[in-house]
Design a binder for these strands. Sequence first.
DNA 1: ATAGCGAGTGTACGATCGTACCTATCGATG
DNA 2: CATCGATAGGTACGATCGTACACTCGCTAT
Lengths: 186, 186
Amino acid sequence: MPEVRRLRRTDPGRRERIIEASLTLIAEAGVAGTSHRRVAAAADVPLGSMTYHFDGMDELLREAFTRFAGSVAEQFEARLGAAHDREEAKAAVTAIITEDLFGKPRDLVLTHELYTLAAREPRFRDITNSWMARSRRALEWHFDPQTAQLLDALIEGLTIHRALEQEPERLSRGAVADAVQRIAGS
Amino acid sequence: MPEVRRLRRTDPGRRERIIEASLTLIAEAGVAGTSHRRVAAAADVPLGSMTYHFDGMDELLREAFTRFAGSVAEQFEARLGAAHDREEAKAAVTAIITEDLFGKPRDLVLTHELYTLAAREPRFRDITNSWMARSRRALEWHFDPQTAQLLDALIEGLTIHRALEQEPERLSRGAVADAVQRIAGS
DNA sequence: ATAGCGAGTGTACGATCGTACCTATCGATG
DNA sequence: CATCGATAGGTACGATCGTACACTCGCTAT
């Protein structure tokens, strides 16, 4: 019986584990504090696996951030896809800002790390661009392009505020809903 | 004749030059790529001056970012202080977003580097908090607190978009003015 | 004139970095 | 069963890092 499936010798989830560990590490120590050795230790793989699975630090960062951005975009689309009309879409945007999409500090920090990297190094902008394009497109399921862009900007801006403020949740759900209303009208 | 003034032996602007050089370096290479040696080379001072003038990397970053945030806040206040009524204030906000306050790529990158650092390390949040408080207060010269916060978020959000987009200035002045109008009403 | 002090400098140390490269292991193949 | 290539691991190298610390030397007070 000819075997088509290709059997990995061991541990087929190695690459995934490395990527996941690097995201956690980036959130804790920043891109600055992320090294092959630290990632390897966090993922519990030998140092040699780093250069084996990834061509270098750059490729590791690219893959990790691509995965992260994709996963956030996916959740974003799911939220907006579940809305059946404009009113529900506005409620979804309000929920996205106030609730758990960026609720985990890890995701907030990772988002900023990625933005910062992309702002400084144009070769990472394809990741942020496709992320932004997906978000924009999802918003355009319910809103005109300009309104979509403004809502997107509002999400980014309020997310930043939430990430930087000591006391969490200074902006109430009602206030956010009002903001969405001002931008997206009736 | 008793001398009160304290004469520096040489180069009294050393500290300033170091701070300025570190900001330029952070903009180019990120906090990650900023080292004592690189800053020293950029500022054309010996390596020993680093530990002499600053207790460590952390203090250098604090001073540099404090200076940067202060200077941006100052410009921000100047713009809004020059507005005599609500309409002029709205025009000022539009100008701040579209024009030169964050026009230099350097300032855009530095802003993100600071946000990222503060998001990850709470001990830098006093810098971002006082910056945000100054911006908010300046906006409140003309707008109610909630509107001020939303305008602030809009500025942040659109600034991010500008920093990340390949083609610059996808958002026209007219569109921004419309956005401000939606938020700040009549 | 000179002693002393303190601002400013140069260097060396130990740690850590990315990466290259040689070796080991094991499933697939003839 | 012998061999081979893909996968994985261990280690060593050269570069760079932050920082400590001994030192220099110009200014000031006497």
